[in-house]
């Protein structure tokens, strides 16, 4: 495998790639900010959570379990299970850091989101091997996400959302749009079909996330690997 780079040019390309995705964070960020306020978090606490955790779906799920005093085990488990999908993501992105060491690698990993993952995979498939590209996407995403959440908290006096409100769909809609950028052709039908079918089957057994995503992702990618190995 070829050595990866970590260049200023890659960072700049990442910044440019991040620009079109930043507005997409607004709806979901506002929702998390509104929910933070509704659950009794102060503006500083909502901002700090977004800065340190930086994972929208996990923040929303943990806020659903929020109480006074904070149920530490429940919110920690919520963050752990919802974010478990990130472990295979950074494993798949590993070639972007091949041969790279030090703080910049571990700092870049902190900024990996669904958005930077999707763009990072496209970079890999195009032959790119520059970890700074990922940091260029992740850094502005991190800061803008925190800005959106704090803005949502500030707006909380004027807006209230029910748990089933369609605006809460913004996070899933974001992932559905991103998956369209990963489509490579008919060869994806088998792994994606198996992943979806297994995910839905586990969900039908009333098992919550992350079990559908873990089982579905493993089954789908194994089906694709099995098919490729027979060719």
């Amino acid at each position: 495998m070829s050595e990866a780079r970590f260049s200023a040019q890659g960072f700049r390309r990442g910044l440019l790639a991040a620009l079109p995705i930043l507005p997409s964070l607004i709806p979901f960020g506002l929702v998390v900010g509104l929910e933070s306020a509704a659950r009794g978090l102060s503006l500083a606490e909502a901002g700090l959570m977004s800065l340190l955790v930086f994972a929208g779906t996990a923040q929303l799920v943990a806020l659903g379990a929020w109480a006074d005093p904070v149920p530490l085990l429940a919110v920690t488990l919520a963050a752990l299970v919802v974010n478990l999908r990130m472990a295979p993501m950074t494993a798949a992105l590993a070639p972007l850091f091949h041969g790279q060491r030090g703080l910049r690698v571990w700092a870049t990993l902190f900024t990996v989101t669904d958005h930077s993952f999707a763009l990072g995979v496209r970079e890999l498939r195009a032959g790119g091997r520059d970890g700074a590209f990922l940091l260029g996407i992740g850094l502005p995403t991190w800061l803008f996400w925190t800005l959106c959440v704090t803005a949502g908290h500030v707006l909380s006096g004027a807006v209230a959302l029910s748990p089933q409100h369609p605006l809460l769909f913004a996070g899933l809609a974001s992932m559905a749009a991103l998956v369209a950028t990963l489509w490579r052709g008919p060869g994806d039908v088998l792994p994606w079909g198996v992943a979806g079918a297994v995910g839905l089957a586990i969900h039908a057994l009333s098992l919550p996330q992350p079990w559908p995503v873990l089982a579905g992702a493993l089954a789908g990618s194994a089906a694709g690997a099995w098919r490729d190995g027979r060719r």
Binding site: R85, P88, M89, A91, A92, D114, F117, A118, V121, L172, M175, A176, L178, V179, L182, W183, D188, P191, W192, V194, A195, G196, V198, G199, L200, I202, H203, Q209, P212, V213, L214, A215, G216, A217, L218, A219, G220, S221, A222, A223, G224, A225, W226, D228, G229
Partner: peptide, 23 residues
């Protein structure tokens, strides 16, 4: 085999997360 799985993992993760949530 795991290396080949990693090539299919990105799309599979998204699909298996989106479908149950949307359903």
């Amino acid at each position: 085999f795991v290396e080949r799985m990693l090539l299919h993992l990105p799309g599979s993760i998204f699909i298996a997360f989106i479908l149950p949530g949307a359903a």
